[in-house]
């Protein structure tokens, strides 16, 4: 009798078997489970999930927008580079034209100057030639005079009294010609 009471008390304090299989408790658990799930479902479908979806969509949109903007900027940068290159090429071509023009002008001036200088040089050279010819002629005449004088002196010295000026002159002229 006593042991039976202890056993009963123990059974009340410690559950015997699996509490999961006690059918008295099923309805309570199912009821509260349904309440819980319904509450969670409404909170999720009315508040949480639309909000998270919106945030994710917004982030996706923001990232996509930034990427698009970056793409646009890149295209702009490429266009700017192309414009710069084109401007550079144009400037180069212009510079080439200017250089060629300047060169042509300088060449023209140079040609004129050279022609002038050539003409001057030719004039000077002609003048010089005339001078030289004159000097040469002068020299030749001087040589003839010197030769006549010298010959006359020599003849006078060798054969005094035989100094025929005319004959000496003729002889010297004949000699000089030869």
């Amino acid at each position: 009798m006593a042991s039976e009471t202890t056993h009963a008390a123990e059974a009340a304090e410690h559950y015997v078997g699996m509490p999961q299989l006690n059918p008295d408790w099923f309805s309570n658990q199912i009821f509260w489970l349904v309440v819980t799930l319904v509450v969670i479902f409404f909170v999720l479908s009315k508040v949480a999930l639309p909000r998270i979806a919106a945030v994710l969509a917004e982030r996706h949109g923001a990232i996509q927008g930034d990427l698009d903007k970056a793409e646009e900027m890149k295209a702009k940068a490429i266009a700017a580079e192309e414009a710069y290159n084109a401007a550079l090429a144009k400037a180069r071509a212009e510079a080439g034209v200017i250089v060629a023009e300047a060169k042509a002008e300088i060449q023209k001036e140079l040609d004129i100057a050279i022609a002038l200088a050539d003409a001057e040089i030719a004039a000077k050279a002609a003048e010089s030639d005339v001078e030289i010819q004159k000097i040469r002629d002068g020299a030749l005449a001087a040589i003839k005079d010197v030769a006549n004088d010298t010959t006359a002196e020599i003849v006078k010295a060798i054969m005094p009294g035989a100094d025929d000026a005319k004959a000496v002159k003729a002889a010297v002229a004949a000699r000089l010609k030869g």
Binding site: I40, V43, L44, A48, R51, I52, V55, R59, A62
Partner: peptide, 14 residues
């Protein structure tokens, strides 16, 4: 669940 999914996402931050 409400704390995590409702209050946790309150900022709606990027």
């Amino acid at each position: 669940i409400i704390a995590l999914l409702v209050f946790g996402t309150r900022g709606r931050a990027i």
